[in-house]
Design a protein around this nucleic acid. Structure first.
Length: 598
RNA sequence: GUCCCGAUAGCUCAGAGGAUAGAGCAUCUGCCUUCUAAGCAGAUGGUCGCAGGUUCGAAUCCUGCUCGGGACGCCA
């Protein structure tokens, strides 16, 4: 999609400057004209110097000359190599949002660029409930999956549940000792929280034993908790339980299954509230041995080597050496990921795989990809680690052990409660029937929008007091613009003017506020595609804020239902509905919805 | 020690080599008898960490330095 006059300008410049070499599919692209300049759009000719093999200034002069006499251009101005164009409203609206279906459709990539993509995210441990860090992961993962799908990719979101290991044994052991047969049903506690409580109890007991150990053995004072873990009774007990688990001890397995089922049932509620859905779940207890075959293959091919002590290693050059199998033959974290990556490849035959995992694991993924490349998998060049930054609190880092984590379920409840309070304040005595549904959409929307506003790789600060606001650059701000349009639409229906809306004449919309909305709308497909290309939803967030801002200015200055005449009214109404469609589409790409009313 | 990431307004953050560096919050000033004030308009606020370099043009690219965070395990 492009402005007709720019397509014609391209042809003109090609003729004017012999020797021009236009790359396949190249177009003259517009930028929004800065607010303090006269113009709707800007053409930046600095960028075209190479293509037209001429000085930017000369190209801009030629462009200005051509556009000045163009029937669809009202005014054109050249400053340095910038050409600022005021379009006639009819042309501006025709080339932007008049055909809303075409505009929304333009966000889809051509079929040749559509890929099959597996997105792995969330990957929780089953020993404790999810916290704000997981919420950021889940939000990024689901929004990325949704966005990639929106631009035309075939996306399979998957989750790898980390359901085995020493951490789950810790919860199990504490449950055996202190549980007294408690269940989520008997206590009324959500399963993941119940198990998490025992994880905390385990660590309390461990800390007691560590303190006692240090007290009794002053020479151990300088040793870390990890060093002393197996010197404590409860540390050894957890270790033993892990060995029993690996050996398939029936009693341990039974407890493990029971407690995992509680946690997973709890996670399902958390996911449901966020709107998280996976195409497939992988359990690490199923996949943790998969990597061993890969290691054998690598050894046969001579890509890996066996060290004297029996450990299998790989030499990754600049990245260093990495152990793939311990000297006792057991697998390590990266072995499991090698196996799972191949399994995902077999299951989906994707063009590309993406992992949404925190940035402390950057090296791990560099190594994983390097190993797969070294093994000769051609698709290994299309693996991406979307490394996102940690979430910090004003008080510093979140630490499970220090109890400073922000619990996911509590956070949701708090956001929704505040949204409800804000809604009730505004609606006075007439409490809407759908108050709970509305609060849910607004509260969860605010939370997701806030998390997506940051560039994923930013280490972000979550200030509960500031983040919980619904004013300014927030999800509710964008939702509000949509809700206002919903309200106008309802009133238009009541007054029976929806059906008479045949009088659309875009040339009537010459106010700056009206044209500004059209200019923003024009850039919607580009915003989505750029975000998808960069795997960065914050692009979409910025775009939507910008569009909503332009709409709110329009709303203030240009009466719709009370416009001076019917043709103007109907055209403005059409403008509103199209903006609402874009906002709804964009928010939905971020997995956020708009309430009917706010 | 080596490697990676960051440093932009009082605070939180945007800024695909391009115009006089932006937004929100906070502070201050206006605007609800007109379609929703979760809104709009305005004011205040900047040596873009420091020093060089490349370029017609650098917050953006390169080099060095300072400060902050992370990684460097036969943990996950």
């Amino acid at each position: 999609m492009n402005f007709c006059c720019l397509n014609e300008l391209k042809e003109h410049l090609i003729e004017k400057f012999p020797g021009t070499q236009i790359p396949e599919g190249w177009e003259i692209t517009a930028e929004p004209c800065p607010a303090d300049m006269t113009g709707d759009i800007t053409v930046n000719c600095f960028r075209f110097a190479r293509i037209f093999r001429n000085a930017p200034d000369k190209i801009a002069a030629a462009a200005k000359e051509f556009l000045a006499s163009h029937a669809e251009v009202e005014q054109v101005e050249k400053i340095k190599a910038f050409v600022n164009i005021v379009l006639k409203p009819g042309a501006l609206f025709r080339d932007s949002l008049a055909d809303i279906d075409a505009l929304l459709d333009a966000a889809k990539l051509p079929e040749s660029s559509q890929k099959k993509i597996v997105v792995e995210y969330s990957a929780p441990n089953t020993n404790k409930p999810q916290h704000l860090g997981h919420v950021r992961n889940n939000t990024l993962g689901m929004a990325l999956s949704s966005l990639l799908k929106r631009v035309g990719h075939k996306v399979s979101p998957v989750n790898l549940i980390n359901d085995r290991g020493i951490h789950i044994c810790k919860s199990m052991l504490a449950y055996q000792r202190f549980g007294n047969g408690a269940t989520p049903e008997s206590t009324g506690i959500k399963g993941d929280h119940l198990v998490g409580d025992f994880y905390v109890k385990y660590n309390d007991e461990l800390n007691k034993q560590l303190a006692k150990l240090r007290e009794q053995n002053p020479e151990l004072k300088g040793k870390s908790d990890d060093d002393l873990f197996l010197k404590t009774e409860i540390g050894r007990a957890a270790q033993t339980m892990l060995q029993q688990w690996e050996a398939g001890d029936p009693e341990v397995r039974k407890l493990w299954e029971t407690m995992n089922s509680w946690v997973i049932a709890g996670f399902e509620q958390t996911y449901k509230r966020m709107g998280v859905e996976f195409f497939q779940l992988y359990l690490e207890s199923d996949t943790y041995l998969l990597g061993k075959n890969v290691v054998e293959q690598g050894l046969e091919k001579g890509v890996f080597f066996k060290r004297d002590d029996g450990a299998v290693m790989v030499d990754l050059g600049k990245l260093g050496e990495k152990v793939l199998l311990r000297s006792d033959g057991t697998s390590v974290y990266i072995t499991q990921d090698l196996g799972t990556t191949l399994k995902k490849y077999e299951d989906f035959k994707p063009d590309s795989q993406i992992w949404v995992v925190g940035d402390e694991q950057i090296l791990h993924f560099k190594m994983l990809f390097a190993i797969l490349k070294k093994m000769g998998y051609e698709w290994a060049g299309n693996l991406y680690h979307l490394a996102y930054g940690m979430v910090n609190l004003p008080s510093g880092k979140m630490k499970s052990r220090e109890g400073t984590v922000v619990d996911a379920d509590d956070l949701f409840a708090e956001m929704v409660e505040l949204a409800k309070k804000a809604t009730l304040e505004r609606c006075g005595d007439e409490v809407p029937e759908d108050i709970d549904e509305r609060s849910e959409i607004i509260g969860m929307g605010a939370l997701k929008f806030m998390l997506l506003k940051f560039n994923p790789k930013t280490t972000m600060m979550f200030d509960p007091e500031a983040s919980v606001k619904f004013e300014g650059d927030t999800g509710p701000y964008v939702q509000y613009a949509g809700a206002r349009i919903n309200s106008i639409e309802r009133k238009a229906r009541e007054r029976g003017i929806m059906d008479s809306a045949s009088e659309i004449d875009w040339s009537l919309l010459s106010a700056t506020e009206e044209k500004e909305v059209a200019v923003r709308a024009f850039f919607y497909p580009q915003a989505l595609q750029a975000a998808a290309e960069k795997l960065d939803c914050s692009n979409v967030v910025s775009y939507l804020l910008d569009l909503a801002k332009a709409y709110n200015r329009f709303y203030r200055e240009c009466p719709v239902l009370n416009a001076d005449n019917e043709a103007l009214r109907d055209t403005r109404l059409a403008l509103c509905l199209r903006v609402r469609d874009i906002i709804a589409d964009g928010l939905s790409a971020l997995t956020i919805s708009i309430p009917e009313a706010m």
